[in-house]
Design a protein around this nucleic acid. Structure first.
Length: 109
DNA sequence: TGAGTGACTGTAA
DNA sequence: CTTACAGCCACTC
């Protein structure tokens, strides 16, 4: 069984697009949702190669830290999150636990 | 072709 | 709490 990375990336983008405004998710959550938890690094790679219609700024690491802040070019990621009502402090999302959105939750629903 | 790097995570000390 | 190591895979030089 070959692993289609393009399909994997496609799924990543699909799930990322499902993240509602004002909510955030994590790379591990997406990877887990795709049953490819060990390919979480590919999720980040996919985010770096994601189209503009993918709200990659809502994807953080499992600690709620804006690890991809640099990839957005400075505080752009923070501005985008704040524009959606998400408080960001010291590169970390405030109440990350509350704002956390689980892709499995939406898929199961 | 091989070595280095990275938008990660989990476990351990 | 921080620091360190291992596993994972694609990309770049």
């Amino acid at each position: 069984m070959e692993f289609d990375k393009e399909q994997f990336i496609k799924d990543i983008h699909a799930i990322t697009r499902l993240i509602p405004a004002g909510r955030v998710s994590s790379y591990g959550a997406i990877a887990t949702a795709l049953e490819q938890k060990r390919r979480v690094r590919m999720v980040g790679w996919a985010m770096n190669n994601c189209p503009e219609d993918v709200p990659a700024h809502r994807v953080l690491n499992r600690n709620g830290v804006l690890t991809g802040r640099a990839a957005f070019g400075g505080n752009l990621m923070v501005e985008l999150l704040r524009a959606e009502g998400i408080e960001v402090k010291d590169n970390k999302v405030v109440d990350f636990k509350t704002l956390y959105w689980d892709p499995l939750r939406d898929m199961d629903c």
